[in-house]
Design a protein around this nucleic acid. Sequence first.
DNA 1: ACTTTGGTTAAGCATGGTCTTAAGTAACAA
DNA 2: TTGTTACTTAAGACCATGCTTAACCAAAGT
Lengths: 112, 112
Amino acid sequence: MLNQSPNLDLMFQALADPTRRAMIDRLSHGPASVSELAKPFAMSLPAVVQHLQALEQSGLVSSQKLGRVRTVRIEPEALSLAEQWINDRRTLWARRLDRLGDLLSETEGDQQ
Amino acid sequence: MLNQSPNLDLMFQALADPTRRAMIDRLSHGPASVSELAKPFAMSLPAVVQHLQALEQSGLVSSQKLGRVRTVRIEPEALSLAEQWINDRRTLWARRLDRLGDLLSETEGDQQ
DNA sequence: ACTTTGGTTAAGCATGGTCTTAAGTAACAA
DNA sequence: TTGTTACTTAAGACCATGCTTAACCAAAGT
């Protein structure tokens, strides 16, 4: 299954679950099969697959099947998109604080 | 109400909703009151307040009440934490790709 | 004092997300 | 060909989420 078009709703929703974040964590070290990904978790395989579907629909992960094993890998561009969204807002705020700082020091200058 | 201890589950959950992302977007330009934040949305005030509670519980936002108006502001450190989580995994993956690239070019060198 | 503004609380409802078990399929192994 | 492995599909239980309306409260304005 190829990657879905990344969607912020689905991406952040996918990242909101600790199981799915643990999977991303595992996948950041390299691709893995479904059963490899399932191993650390005390839940049924269908549950694991449902988590993987959430990750794949969000675009954060892609997978392809070869023979009977599905190999899952991380999609760094999608991760980057989510990261960028946060960064943009955070830096906007930071710039605003900078401008406020400038204004303050200008007024101090006027007073001195 | 002061800021909650930031929690990745709650933060990403909070960011998963377009209404709440729009609020963060608005707040990245500066603090705002509850009714200012509510204005763009076609939903009841209680619904807006519930979204703000989700944001505040996640730590992404803090607020304080003065007289009868509650002023909400962004918490850049919490945003930074979420951003950092993604960045860490993404760069881990990128470094892995670099190492693979190195291995490949070494083998190419051997062959040439 | 009375009204308006800004927000809060509570209750209810529809939908969606996270698990389960049971049953099925297709590839590979003996 | 028979069994085992690696998923896949389907259906249901159960709790969480995202809204609503109604009623309330307290600060500010007239």
